[in-house]
Design a binder for these strands. Structure first.
Lengths: 145, 145
DNA sequence: TCTTGACCTTCCAGTTGCTGGAAGGTCTAA
DNA sequence: TTAGACCTTCCAGCAACTGGAAGGTCAAGA
C-alpha cells in the first residue's frame, strides 16, 4: 500500500512515517517503479506499536531499542516492564506536582480577583505572578534549577 | 553586577540569561570597559518574574507580551488573569488525563506481571504495549491525531 | 612580573519530535 | 491533454534552551 493509505490506517501523518523511517524505527520499504514507497500490512502493526509507545511517553530512542530487541529475537517484555515501572513512577510524581500546581493556580486565580488591577508604575510587572509562591513547577525539574 | 552573580541570585544559568536577552525578554545591559555585561539590581526582579511565569507555563512569547504591556504602562494583571484561567483549565485537563493514564499504566503493569515474557516469534513486538487500550495520552493532543 | 584558573564574550550548532515548504516527478479521472 | 491529488528528497523551522569552539579579561598567588 501507498504511504497515504498507511497514514490513514494508523492516523500517523505521512511526514511522520517518513521521519520514523529516517530515524530507523521503520525498515525501508520496497518501492514502486515510480519510486513510491510500497508497504506491507505488517507496517500497520509496527506503526501502531510505535504510536502506543509514544503515547506511553517512551522516547523514540527507547522505542527503537525495544524494536531492535524484537528483531534480535530477544525478550522485549521484560524490558518494557522496567520502562513501565519507570513511567508509572514518573506519572505518580507528575500527578502530585500537578495537584500542587493546581492548588497554586486556584490560589492565584482567587487572589487575582481581589487584586486591584496593577497600574504599572515603577513597581512589579504583575503582582499576580510576582507575589506567587511559585518556586517549582510541574515537571520534576522545572524550567530552571 | 556581573552575569554570574545575576545567575547565582536568580538560579538562572548565564547561558539562559543571554538567551533571554537575545529573545528580547531582557534589555541590553550596560557594559564594562572589557565588554562584560553590567547589570543593575532591577534585573533580578525582572528575571525572577520571567522565571515564575515560565514555571506557570507561559511561553516566552507570552511572557514577552506581558513585559511589553508593562513597559507601555498598560495594565498587565487583566492580561495575566486571562492567561491564568487558561492555564488552570489546561491543568484541570492534564490532571484528568494523567489520572486516566495512571489507571492504564497500573493495569498494564499488573497485566505485565501475569504475562509470560514474550519470546518474540513472528508475533507482536511486545504484548504489553500492543494489547494496551492506549489510544490517547496525557496531553490533550497526544503525539498523533 | 608571570602564571593559571575562572570568568567573560560571540558565534554556531545541537537536543527532541516533529512539520512545513520548495522543487520536481507520477497518477488518474474528466 | 489537463488538473488536481498524490509521490519523492532536501532543507529548514518550531520551542526553549544548552554545549562547545575560539578568543579575550581578571585577579590571586608564586
Amino acid at each position: 500500500m501507498k504511504i497515504s493509505e498507511l497514514a490513514s490506517l494508523t492516523s500517523i501523518p505521512s511526514k511522520t512515517i517518513r521521519f520514523y523511517e529516517a530515524e530507523g524505527l521503520l525498515p525501508h520499504p520496497k518501492r514502486t517503479q515510480a519510486g513510491y514507497r510500497d508497504y506491507e500490512g505488517a507496517a500497520v502493526e509496527r506503526l501502531t506499536f510505535i504510536k502506543k509507545a509514544r503515547i506511553l511517553g517512551l522516547p523514540l530512542k527507547e522505542v527503537e531499542g525495544v524494536l531492535q530487541l524484537h528483531e534480535r529475537q530477544q525478550p522485549t517484555c521484560v524490558h518494557v516492564r522496567a520502562l513501565l515501572e519507570d513511567k508509572l513512577a514518573q506519572a505518580e510524581r507528575a500527578i502530585q506536582d500537578l495537584l500542587a500546581f493546581r492548588e497554586e493556580l486556584v490560589r492565584l486565580r482567587d487572589r487575582a480577583g481581589t487584586l486591584a488591577d496593577c497600574c504599572p508604575t515603577r513597581g512589579s510587572v504583575c503582582g499576580i505572578i510576582q507575589e506567587s509562591e511559585i518556586v517549582q513547577g510541574v515537571n520534576a525539574g522545572g524550567p530552571h534549577g
